Amino acid sequence: MRSGAAFLAVGTGLVLHARRAFLRELRQARAAVASARSMPLRPLPPRVAGLDLAAAQLPADRGAAVGGDLYEVIATEHGVRAVIGDVRGHGLAALGTVAAVLGTFRAAAHDEADLEGVLRRLDRALARHVRDREPDPEGPEHFVTVLLLQIAGDGTLHTLNCGHPWPYRLNGTEAEPVSRTEPLPPLGPFPLPPDLPTENPGSLLPGETLVLYTDGVEDARNTEGRFFPLPSVLTEATRAGPLSPQAVLRTVFTQLLDHTTQRPADDVAVLVIHNVGDVVRGATAEKRGAGLHR
């Protein structure tokens, strides 16, 4: 009789444990769906303030609409501002962090006079998000690589980079990184330094193109373990003649999938920005409130 009661108690405990686990997973799934509907990646307009745009992502998880990569481009009174980033992990676990970072960028890009202010807002938003979602100090480490880019009305570039790959500039003959400076650490594990080194890697001239990407692109391997040769792919593309951002994007993803022969092991995102030659006119129009992308 006692053994039957003990068996019943153990069985009841297992059922309750399974039920709690199921409810916890259900809450997480509902939160992820709510975030997906309200915040993360949305289609970019084809043109912002004289810049042609194209962007796409390929989540590592099959069936997922979004992954742990993020990007956005917004025209502001300070110039066109863009962000691209890579959240640690991928799939549903990264979705809330993507939402927190993108939501903050969309507000801070308009509010802050310089990129330093934008980056510090992103850093604080990430810290709040981690504190709210992961109150356990022994929980997994959260971090996000982030590249902030500002394109002034005359094409002048300003950047802040926290652990992210530098973009490539396509000038019609070759593809070169806009900078080779060592980035700051990713957001999350360490506090930002008092002075943030904003870089000025020249200008985006009429006819030139910037290719921003996440490290899942260059880290993608083929069956022999060789990494995807992004620089040579971009160089070949730019030497083939004038290319639209859509054509560059199509070339990268086509050759990437051909290289890996399957879906890459990590999330992949690519953002292409092309100066069609009227950035100054476009930026002036933005100040008058025309064509503002919010």
Rank of each mutant, 00 (worst) to 15 (best):
G188Y: 04
G188V: 04
G188H: 05
G188P: 00
F190N: 08
F190P: 00
F190R: 13
P191E: 08
P191S: 10
P191T: 05
P191H: 01
L192N: 07
L192E: 09
L192K: 06
L192M: 11
L192V: 10
P193E: 05
P193D: 04
P193L: 08
P193Y: 09
P193Q: 01
P194Q: 14
P194W: 10
P194M: 02
P194K: 10
P194I: 01
P194G: 03
D195I: 13
L196Y: 10
L196R: 02
L196G: 02
L196K: 04
T198F: 00
T198C: 10
N200A: 11
P201D: 14
G202H: 02
S203V: 02
S203H: 13
S203F: 00
S203I: 00
L204C: 04
L204K: 01
L205Q: 03
L205E: 06
L205S: 11
L205I: 03
P206N: 11
P206Q: 10
P206D: 14
G207V: 12
G207L: 10
G207S: 05
G207I: 11
E208L: 05
E208W: 14
E208R: 09
T209A: 03
T209R: 05
T209F: 01
L210S: 13
L210G: 11
L210F: 08
V211S: 02
V211A: 06
L212D: 13
L212E: 13
L212C: 15
L212V: 04
L212M: 15
Y213Q: 12
Y213W: 08
Y213A: 15
Y213F: 15
T214L: 11
T214D: 11
T214N: 12
D215H: 07
D215F: 12
D215R: 05
D215C: 09
D215V: 09
G216N: 04
G216Q: 08
G216D: 03
V217M: 01
E218G: 01
E218L: 06
E218S: 08
D219E: 15
D219S: 15
D219I: 05
D219F: 13
A220T: 15
A220V: 06
A220R: 01
A220W: 02
R221I: 15
R221A: 13
R221T: 14
R221S: 10
R221E: 15
R221D: 11
R221C: 14
N222D: 15
N222A: 06
T223W: 00
E224K: 09
E224N: 10
E224F: 03
F227R: 01
F228C: 03
P229M: 07
P229N: 07
P229I: 02
L230S: 13
L230W: 03
P231V: 02
P231E: 05
P231D: 06
S232M: 09
S232K: 06
V233P: 01
V233A: 11
V233M: 03
L234I: 08
L234N: 11
T235N: 10
T235P: 07
E236R: 13
E236W: 11
A237E: 13
T238W: 12
T238F: 12
T238K: 12
R239A: 07
R239H: 03
